[in-house]
């Protein structure tokens, strides 16, 4: 079974820049305390970590009350380096899918390959959940989903209904 809830507010920072730039990699890992996330990966967790959004974009997670300082720290570290950093803590919501059925709930809605071979711990996948654009990964005893805040009510209802509709028995 799966319990779907809205996560407590997270600190989230969008960082665009050259992933090959040593200063940028160092600035990121200094903030997250994790490895630098490579393609389609998330390092750390939604509490503190970083996810690979695109070849030149990361989503950095820090505790909510550290977000403003982390943005300042990144800006300072990247002075002189072409980049864009923005506090996006309010832009998205994070939904928790707690329970062993999380993978199947996602597979009801996403065209992405969610077989454990393709979607294991540490995989960060941006795709669709039904009509929503969303990113998701495995965390804790289930999964986490991020989507735009305006869609929070819909996303909650969608994931909850998919959970209520029961196990498929595939994964």
């Amino acid at each position: 079974m799966v319990e779907v809830t809205l996560s407590a507010p997270l600190g989230m920072i969008s960082l665009r820049g050259d992933h090959g730039d040593a200063a940028l990699r160092e600035a990121v890992t200094a903030v997250t305390g994790t490895a630098f996330p490579e393609r389609l990966r998330i390092e750390g967790t939604s509490e503190r970590g970083a996810a690979w959004m695109s070849p030149d974009e990361l989503l950095i997670f820090v505790p909510r009350d550290e977000a403003v300082a982390a943005v300042a720290r990144l800006s300072e570290a990247l002075a002189g380096v072409h980049h864009l950093v923005a506090d996006v803590s309010d832009m998205r919501v994070c939904l928790r899918l707690d329970g062993p059925g999380a993978r199947e709930v996602l597979a009801k809605l996403s065209p992405a390959d969610l077989h454990p071979e393709a979607f294991g711990p540490g995989t960060f996948r941006r795709s669709r959940l039904g009509q929503l654009a969303a990113g998701f990964w495995l965390e804790g005893e289930g999964a986490r989903v991020i989507c735009f805040r305006s869609l929070a009510d819909y996303a909650l209802a969608l994931l909850r209904q998919s959970g209520r509709d029961g196990a498929v028995g595939y994964y």
């Binding site: 039904g130 009510d153 969608l158 209904q161 998919s162 509709d165």
Partner: peptide, 14 residues
Amino acid sequence: GVAKEELFQPIRKT
């Protein structure tokens, strides 16, 4: 599929 009634279409809310 699941996209009926209140889930027919996403509604964005401010």
